[in-house]
């Protein structure tokens, strides 16, 4: 991993709402094929950080680049990202496949045959190719989030950003989707930045965990999880790590 190419680089990023300091001098990077988790207590500014990385908010101080393109370049920068939100955010009047193809349609007049094929491929990867013609209200919560995942990877982005994507799903679906996203990552060699508030989730999926502190948010520690995939959820190593992280939180 040492010599790998850097995909996402966060360099000295600070952000404030009026007088309220939300983020202070955040710096880290995500390398190619790496899964990095941002872990922090609720309300610590994780979402603000992800908004800056996804180009939904503009940086006030510091730099964010993906594959060398600065987030200040707006439209061009966005072409390198795929984002999965907490909720699926599907367009209810479109079928599953048309929802997956929307990133193309938002950028060009006509979707090409090749892109349609890519859309079906993405649906296949999340196991929903037979639901291509269904509307979102005909799918379950877990299926909807899978469609959102397919939509985020259809453009083959350099980095996949996930903002607490499994919040609100039941434990069973949540664990199933964690495994699926990991296997999808393996198959498609993705780079991922995954935001979560759940230490167990972070330990299960991440190569590295960036632990954030409470406000004003700074990077408290960057923990490497040196355990090969597939991991077991309750291994001694995992439990030790969880304890270490919880201790970090309680110091706040």
């Amino acid at each position: 991993m040492e010599n790998s190419e850097v995909i996402l680089k966060i360099d000295d990023v600070s952000f404030e709402y009026g007088k309220l300091k939300v983020l202070e001098q955040i710096s880290f990077d995500v390398k190619k094929n790496e899964t990095v988790c941002i872990l922090g207590p609720s309300g610590c500014g994780k979402t603000t950080l992800l908004r800056l990385i996804s180009g939904l908010a503009t940086t006030q101080h510091g730099n964010v680049t993906v594959s060398g393109v600065s987030s200040s370049q707006g439209h061009d920068y966005k072409q390198h990202l795929g984002l999965v939100f907490q909720e699926p955010r599907l367009l209810p009047w479109r079928t599953t496949i048309d929802n997956v193809l929307i990133p193309f349609e938002l950028n060009q007049d006509k979707v090409t045959e090749e892109q349609k094929e890519k859309g079906m491929q993405a649906l296949k990867l999340v196991g929903l190719e037979s639901f291509a013609e269904n509307y979102s209200h005909e799918l379950s919560g877990g299926m909807r989030q899978r469609v959102a995942l397919a939509r985020a990877i259809v453009t083959d982005p350099d980095i996949l950003l996930l903002d607490e994507p499994l919040t609100g799903l039941d434990v069973h679906t949540k664990e199933e989707l964690q495994d699926e996203i990991l296997s999808l990552k393996e198959k498609t060699k993705r780079t991922m930045l995954w935001v979560t508030h759940d230490p167990q989730e972070a330990i299960y999926i991440a190569d590295r965990i960036i632990v954030l502190s409470n406000r004003p948010t700074v990077v408290r520690e960057i923990i490497s999880v040196n355990e090969p995939y597939p991991r077991t959820r309750m291994s001694q190593n995992a439990l030790d790590l969880e304890k270490r992280i919880r201790n970090l939180f309680s110091e706040d």
């Binding site: 996804s54 966005k78 929307i102 938002l106």
Partner: peptide, 27 residues
Amino acid sequence: DTLIEMASTYTNKRFRILRKVILPMLY
């Protein structure tokens, strides 16, 4: 608004967001 936000992670073209996301919500 969350759907508009979703669309704006893929493009900065406001007219396309209007056509593909906002107008269909008004149909």
